[in-house]
Nucleic acid binder design. Structure first.
Length: 343
DNA sequence: AAAAATCCCAACCGCGTTTGC
DNA sequence: TGCAAACGCGGTTGGGATTTT
């Protein structure tokens, strides 16, 4: 569909708005409503195109706009929704009263995206990045590079850093297993029985070699490549305090929702959760659901999540964090007594 | 104190969709 | 039904503000 840009018209002002222009626009819309944006500039006495007026109004002058810093709750909402919706800024904005899509987009590009990258997560998929070097800034910060450089026993510190890197990678991997598949594939990397990407496999092999060098995992050429890492995750003591909150994005054909449960057993549901819970009773066998049962595991395959989305939601609503972890990943063994106390 | 680098966000651009004739 | 205008959205940019060197 062709359309000549309205701003191509000669003589129309562009660039920052002056207070006088703002005043004219606000006064006109208060008295008459915006009506046709194309006609508005002439009627309001503004030398601007309609599109410029619309943007100025919707992104800045509208009286219900909430300005100032984003709260922690708003930040978490954006992260949760972005993990489900992607760059659908207007859809995300509809869940944050008073915030504009433009403001959320800017906040994402200038803060949240960088934050996720620094934490070692891919900002588009919200999954841990699978190249080990992407986690380096975080790992170096974790190990405090200056402390290492200054320490007389540099080698000892290097070993500690390496151990922390392996532990961090394991935790990220664990987190990966709890993430929903990306929206571009209903059969994505989370189907952990058979759909690792090449990058995932590279990481797994690298981590297995690191694990081997630290003497914490057995190796066997006959096993599936991912088995060693998973075995080492099962073998190793993963501190309960390091487990992530369980995020459960739920998507139907008509709506999205999410629910999370943290280690204090606090369940947080978003606004559409009740409606979704109702709809799930009719869609629990949806094969595209991120929590649809995977094929039965064999002795050579890693642990498999079980449970349909409906019983997972039920579990989250009525169970402890530990019980939910156990229901999602029954083969996971954690040596932390706090975890087992919850079961 | 000044220059350079980086951050931040309002505004613009262009494309896809919707609407109305 | 087809076309053009209008609208809405997401990506990008320009330049002022802030921080670093």
């Amino acid at each position: 569909m062709g359309r000549s840009p309205c701003c191509d018209e000669n003589g129309l002002k562009k660039g920052p708005w002056t207070p006088e222009e703002d005043q004219k626009l606000v006064k006109y819309i208060q008295n008459h409503g915006h009506g046709s944006w194309r006609a508005l500039p002439r009627l309001a006495g503004l030398n601007r195109c309609g599109k410029s007026c619309r943007l100025r109004w919707t992104n800045y002058l509208r009286p219900d706009i909430k300005r100032g810093k984003f709260s922690q709750e708003e930040e978490q909402t954006i992260l949760n929704l972005h993990s489900v919706l992607g760059n659908k800024w207007s859809a995300i904005a509809s869940h944050l009263p008073g915030r504009t899509d433009n403001e959320i987009k800017n906040f994402w590009n200038t803060h949240l995206k960088k934050k996720l990258i620094q934490m070692g997560f891919d900002p588009m998929t919200h999954r841990p990045r699978t190249d080990i070097f992407s986690s380096l800034p975080h790992l170096l910060a974790l190990a405090n590079l200056k402390e290492i450089m200054d320490h007389p026993c540099f080698e000892e510190q290097a070993v500690r850093l390496q151990a922390e890197a392996v532990q961090m990678a394991r935790l990220q991997y664990l987190h990966l297993l709890f993430q929903p598949p990306s929206s571009t594939s209903s059969n994505g990397p989370n189907n952990i029985t058979n759909n690792f990407t090449t990058a995932d496999m590279d990481t797994i092999n690298l981590l297995n070699s690191l694990s081997g060098s630290l003497g914490s995992a057995s190796t066997s050429a006959n096993q599936h490549p991912q088995h060693n890492l998973l075995q080492s995750v099962n073998d190793v003591s993963v501190p309960f305090s390091h487990l992530p909150d369980l995020q459960v994005p739920c998507t139907t054909t008509t709506q999205t929702s999410s629910l999370s449960i943290n280690k204090n057993n606090m369940v947080h549901e978003d606004q559409e959760f009740s409606a979704l819970l109702f709809s799930q009773s009719h869609e629990s066998s949806d094969p595209n659901s991120p929590w649809f049962p995977s094929p039965s595991p064999t002795s050579a395959t890693p642990p498999t999540r079980n449970g349909s989305i409906s019983n997972l939601i039920d579990a989250c609503s009525t169970s402890s964090y530990g019980e939910v972890v156990a229901s999602v990943w029954p083969d996971l063994l954690l040596e932390d007594s706090l975890f087992h106390d919850q079961l």
